[in-house]
Simulated assay, not measured.
Amino acid sequence: MIESLLNLSLPLLIFGVFVVLVVSSELGFWIGRLALKIVSKNAPHYFDNSDENVSTITNSSLALLALFLGFTFSSAMDHFELNRQAVINEAAVIKTAYQAAKLQPAPYSQELVKDIREYADIRLELESTQSNEKSVREIQSKSQHQLEKIWSQLRAIAQKDPQSGSLDLLFQAIDSVGTAENARTEYLLNNVPNGLFVPVGLFLIFNGVLLGASLGEGSKRHIILSWGLYFLVALAVGIIADLDRPLHGFINVDQQAMRIMRSAIH
């Protein structure tokens, strides 16, 4: 359920968080108004400094919320950066393997170059696949099958012609390709744990109720200011979730390096 919510489009995600905060705030507001009626009967001067109470509670609550969101944003940003570097690294090692394959004598070079191109096409499918483990693993399985085909060719070349030019370089390059593929796949899948968003959601609801109750105990409701704050918080949560979707988020990891690489190994 959490994964489905986090995979909503950015506008829907922001709107959903905003609605949750508004509803929580309204609930807290009526709780605050009820508390005001009950307590004011027995202690009429209890709320004389209500504006100061609102300010104190709001500042403390927002500080804790900012700390929590900052930690989550840091985790999502680290994941985003790892995916960005993984794309650049994979494009570089595939191009290196292609160049090493071209150094091999005929007829080995033609077949190796062809297979490396097919491998690059498979890896490019990540750009259009769905952002879920099943789809990513399917592409990984296809690319590993293609990579095993390349390894079989290399072993055959090593047996037939062990003195083939730059064979050691090609072995190292293909090994780097496999390492880069595994790293990129794991970075795509090992995102910010969904469980981390559970306390974030609970904390947002708690803050909404707390802010609403504080406003209910005050002399003014501050609808425009409070709803503006909720929108900004919802926007922050949406950006955090979107950063954690490197393939198809609104803020996604640029795949240009892979496309440039593919055009270079024509």
Rank of each mutant, 00 (worst) to 15 (best):
residue 236 A to Y: 08
residue 236 A to E: 15
residue 204 L to E: 05
residue 211 L to D: 01
residue 230 Y to C: 07
residue 230 Y to I: 02
residue 217 E to Q: 12
residue 238 G to E: 07
residue 213 A to N: 11
residue 227 W to I: 00
residue 211 L to K: 02
residue 217 E to D: 01
residue 228 G to S: 14
residue 220 K to P: 01
residue 239 I to D: 01
residue 198 V to F: 13
residue 245 R to Q: 09
residue 214 S to C: 11
residue 215 L to R: 15
residue 239 I to V: 13
residue 246 P to G: 00
residue 206 F to K: 01
residue 223 I to Y: 10
residue 242 D to Q: 02
residue 215 L to T: 10
residue 200 V to A: 02
residue 237 V to F: 03
residue 209 V to G: 05
residue 218 G to M: 13
residue 197 F to S: 00
residue 226 S to Y: 02
residue 210 L to K: 05
residue 224 I to P: 05
residue 207 N to Q: 10
residue 197 F to L: 06
residue 218 G to D: 13
residue 214 S to R: 08
residue 232 L to Q: 14
residue 226 S to K: 03
residue 199 P to C: 04
residue 244 D to L: 01
residue 215 L to F: 13
residue 229 L to E: 10
residue 194 N to R: 05
residue 241 A to P: 09
residue 244 D to V: 00
residue 212 G to N: 15
residue 231 F to Q: 00
residue 227 W to C: 06
residue 218 G to W: 02
residue 235 L to E: 01
residue 222 H to R: 04
residue 207 N to C: 07
residue 210 L to A: 08
residue 207 N to P: 01
residue 227 W to N: 15
residue 217 E to Y: 07
residue 230 Y to G: 06
residue 243 L to F: 07
residue 228 G to H: 02
residue 247 L to V: 04
residue 222 H to W: 09
residue 225 L to F: 03
residue 224 I to K: 14
residue 226 S to T: 13
residue 194 N to Q: 12
residue 246 P to Q: 08
residue 211 L to H: 05
residue 243 L to D: 05
residue 230 Y to N: 08
residue 246 P to E: 14
residue 239 I to P: 02
residue 235 L to D: 07
residue 197 F to R: 04
residue 202 L to I: 10
residue 220 K to S: 15
residue 241 A to N: 03
residue 228 G to L: 06
residue 203 F to S: 06
residue 199 P to A: 00
residue 198 V to D: 10
residue 238 G to T: 04
residue 241 A to I: 12
residue 201 G to R: 01
residue 195 G to M: 03
residue 198 V to N: 06
residue 209 V to S: 01
residue 204 L to H: 09
residue 222 H to K: 02
residue 218 G to F: 05
residue 212 G to W: 00
residue 243 L to T: 06
residue 208 G to S: 05
residue 233 V to D: 07
residue 232 L to F: 15
residue 242 D to F: 03
residue 195 G to A: 15
residue 231 F to I: 09
residue 209 V to F: 12
residue 241 A to L: 10
residue 245 R to C: 08
residue 244 D to P: 06
residue 199 P to I: 06
residue 243 L to V: 03
residue 221 R to I: 11
residue 215 L to M: 11
residue 219 S to K: 15
residue 248 H to G: 11
residue 209 V to D: 11
residue 247 L to S: 12
residue 228 G to C: 14
residue 224 I to C: 09
residue 210 L to R: 04
residue 206 F to S: 07
residue 198 V to W: 06
residue 194 N to I: 11
residue 215 L to A: 09
residue 234 A to D: 00
residue 247 L to I: 12
residue 231 F to Y: 11
residue 204 L to G: 15
residue 202 L to R: 03
residue 226 S to F: 01
residue 234 A to Y: 03
residue 197 F to Y: 12
residue 247 L to W: 08
